[in-house]
């Protein structure tokens, strides 16, 4: 167990292993997203209530799931970094934050656009959208805090603390926003709570969700590799690697 952690904690080992893993994740993610897109856009039946506007679900829900998972992964990486001082974990957390913010934005944007045919307005203070908006602010806070420090190590540790504080707060925020929303219940129905979705509707959704997750892993591996090169630029093995690569 410990040797396993130590191996993966070594930037050199991680660099070579992630280089081998990365193409697989890209391939699987591309396949899943392609199948999900085709199925969701062209083959899944239209919703009896919302018609074809319901097809937005196939980008909205995966993005929303992924955004939340990214925050949790980022906080987990932050914890690993703070407890075991494993630098790779911090590099991964660094590159996860911008993608998380992008995914949150995608979920917000698709939710807002979905609101036009469904609610007749671009923005509704719906519980899900509100939680997503708060999540976006949390991501932006982590990114801003990290870049506000002149020393990289302080920035990393400060961002880690904030990510962990944030991840404890996310369930509380979600719960309280849900409560707040039920108190001010407007006369609309929740977008994504179709009572019972038929299989040919939720199966493409599942495929898209998995595809988005693979995309996240692939992109995180790729950008973590860049981050390793950037931070280890003075190390012998990076120089050797670069000399070989002529």
């Amino acid at each position: 167990m410990w040797t396993f952690i130590h191996k993966w904690g070594s930037p050199k080992w991680f660099y070579s292993m992630s280089g081998k893993l990365q193409p697989w994740f890209w391939t699987v993610s591309l396949l899943l997203i392609a199948v999900g897109t085709l199925w969701g856009l062209a083959f899944a039946p239209a919703d009896y209530q919302q018609g074809n506007s319901f097809r937005i679900i196939y980008v909205h829900v995966p993005a929303a799931f992924l955004a939340q998972s990214i925050f949790v992964s980022m906080a987990a990486a932050a914890l690993v970094f703070m407890v075991w001082k494993i630098k790779i974990a911090d590099m991964a957390a660094t590159v996860m934050a911008p993608l998380g913010a992008v995914m949150t934005f995608v979920a917000l944007f698709s939710g807002a656009v979905w609101g036009v045919p469904t609610w007749g307005t671009w923005w509704m203070w719906d519980a899900r959208l509100t939680s997503m908006l708060i999540l976006l602010f949390l991501f932006l806070g982590v990114i801003a805090l990290r870049s506000a420090f002149t020393s990289r190590d302080s920035g990393s540790r400060a961002a880690s603390v904030l990510a962990m504080v944030g991840v404890i707060n996310i369930p509380i925020i979600k719960y309280s926003v849900d409560w707040w929303f039920t108190l001010h219940q407007p006369a609309t129905f929740r977008v994504t709570s179709s009572p019972s979705m038929p299989t040919e509707m939720w199966l493409p959704l599942l495929i898209m969700v998995l595809g988005f997750y693979c995309f996240f892993i692939a992109l995180t591996l790729m950008r973590t590799r860049s981050e390793i090169l950037r931070r280890e630029a003075n190390k012998r093995w990076v120089m050797d690697l670069m000399k070989e690569a002529h």
Partner: peptide, 27 residues
């Protein structure tokens, strides 16, 4: 899209654009 073209394509388009841009930025 049964009259919902602007919404469906806008949501999908922005999603695709941002995901491709993320990959492009990483590369």
């Amino acid at each position: 899209m049964g009259g919902h073209a602007p919404y469906v394509w806008a949501a999908w388009g922005v999603t695709a654009l941002l995901m491709i841009a993320s990959v492009g930025h990483a590369r």
